[in-house]
Design a binder for these strands. Structure first.
Length: 115
DNA sequence: CTCTTGACGCCGG
DNA sequence: TCCGGCGCCAAGA
């Protein structure tokens, strides 16, 4: 009973995150405030899976990471929490191209080898 | 092994 | 701009 959880993640529901899910969550956790990454960008950086897989991971265990910084390639947050995500993004001064649209050209973030 | 399910992405109309 | 449709790929039944 010493260890109930091997990691500090917060499995919102149940079911341990798969190794792939851990990779996704770890990357999302590194996105700095005021910046965002598209689902497809995350899959491309990991070199595995696709945007659908990233979305699937976020839907299950996204609660432990800055989920609002993961948006669609067109600059809009996922529809299921669009308003809430926009509020959080505006609160951290994320560049917007429109009231409900992220300026991907300025807000898109990519992990550096130095980071 | 096959089939289904997705917090997606891109293209055409 | 808004729709509809197909492609992509991990995970579970």
């Amino acid at each position: 009973m010493s260890r109930t959880r091997p990691a500090g993640r917060r499995p919102a529901v149940e079911g341990l995150p798969t190794p792939y899910a851990e990779q996704v969550l770890d990357l999302v956790a590194q996105i700095p405030p005021g910046r965002v990454m598209a689902y497809g960008d995350i899959a491309a950086v990991l070199g595995r899976g696709g945007p659908r897989q990233v979305g699937n991971v976020m839907s299950r265990w996204g609660g432990g990471v800055p989920w609002h910084r993961v948006v669609r390639a067109d600059g809009r947050p996922a529809e299921c929490h669009e308003g809430q995500a926009l509020a959080l993004l505006r609160a951290e001064d994320t560049p917007l191209a429109r009231p409900d649209r992220i300026d991907m050209a300025r807000a898109r973030w990519h992990p550096e080898p130095f980071d």
